[in-house]
């Protein structure tokens, strides 16, 4: 069966994906609970791969648990922890377990996690990973050239883009490279600075890239003023305007304000030409996702048979 996310996007529907972070242990109950909570509100659920380099249940295992629940996962895969041999082996394994979507990432540097002294593998980079998956799917060959008897034909390949990182002018070039490498869909870094995002989207459209790939804009619901300030000051690659920090600070009900901000951004995303959906990363606040999707007018999600 084809990827549901692919079908949603191909039908021209405004897609919704949601992020799910596996636990720092083996409790499948956590995955089940989060999966149950999110399943009706997303076209696919992204499962992170040891995000911020902290050891968690493997993305592949958590994806398999979601699959068993009838939920469609997007398996995230980073280049930090495995070489090309292990990555391709995991792709075969994931496909055998029913995974159809794969998001190819470089991965946060190991310095940020709970094993800062580990060796970062980075045998291949994210662009090369996309190329490799495409080769497996379309040419039916592993990277080394051996034929795959039954290639993973139905893989839907995703990549990340950060419109807010530097050098800004390089960002559209890099996106173009990822598309040429084989990316079918893009999930962006969280958008708070809508103006800057629009500027990036203009570069993307000028290169005609919005016609070649589906772009899902990242959304992070902000839970507190502290979180807003932290993201503004501490997280490299995030661009949080002062105005948003001030709004969160001044709000009587911070959670409500955070949700309102998310809804406003989603509304704007819907109107930007070339944006095909949103990707909600509600880090540690998954509970809010159903209300956001509902209030954004994106519920119920389309069903295909």
């Amino acid at each position: 069966m084809e990827s549901n996310l692919k079908k949603v996007l191909e039908k021209g529907e405004f897609a919704v994906t949601v992020e799910l972070g596996p636990p720092k242990d083996s409790r499948r109950g956590i995955i089940e609970r989060k999966g149950e909570l999110l399943k009706d509100y997303a076209d696919a659920i992204n499962v992170t791969d040891n995000q911020t380099a902290i050891v968690r249940m493997s993305s592949i295992a958590a994806c398999a648990i979601l699959k068993q629940m009838g939920i469609e996962p997007v398996m995230q895969m980073v280049c930090r922890d495995r070489n090309r041999i292990a990555m391709q082996s995991d792709i075969f394994g994931a496909y055998a377990l029913g995974v159809k979507n794969i998001l190819c990432l470089s991965g946060d540097h190991q310095k940020f996690g709970n094993h800062p002294t580990s060796k970062g593998v980075f045998d291949i980079d994210s662009t090369q990973l996309i190329q490799m998956v495409k080769k497996m799917r379309d040419e039916g060959e592993v990277l080394g050239g051996d034929k795959i008897k039954e290639p993973p034909h139905l893989l839907f390949i995703g990549a990340a883009a950060n419109p807010f990182a530097d050098p800004f002018e390089f960002r559209a070039i890099r996106l173009a490279k990822k598309i040429r490498a084989g990316a079918n869909f893009i999930q962006t870094q969280a958008v708070f600075n809508v103006e800057k995002f629009k500027e990036w989207m203009k570069m993307v459209r000028d290169k005609g890239l919005d016609k070649k790939v589906y772009i899902l804009a990242g959304i992070i619901p902000i839970k507190s003023a502290r979180m807003a300030a932290y993201m503004k000051e501490e997280v490299a690659g995030l661009n949080v305007p002062q105005e948003i920090v001030d709004r969160m600070k001044g709000a009587a009900d911070a959670k409500k304000e955070g949700m309102r901000i998310s809804l406003e951004i989603i509304e704007q995303m819907k109107s930007i030409k070339g944006v095909h959906g949103i990707h909600i990363m509600a880090v540690g606040w998954e509970k809010i996702v159903p209300s956001i999707v509902d209030d954004a007018g994106l519920f119920p999600r389309p069903k295909f048979t």
Partner: peptide
């Protein structure tokens, strides 16, 4: 580049610096 990336900077490149250390130049910049 602290991730040995061959096809451009990761999302952590900011103001010409690497995300792992603000004193470190981003090679891709």
């Amino acid at each position: 580049c602290s991730k040995k990336l061959l096809n451009g900077p990761c999302g952590g490149s900011q103001d010409g610096k690497c995300e792992i250390d603000k004193n470190l130049d981003c090679a891709w910049q």
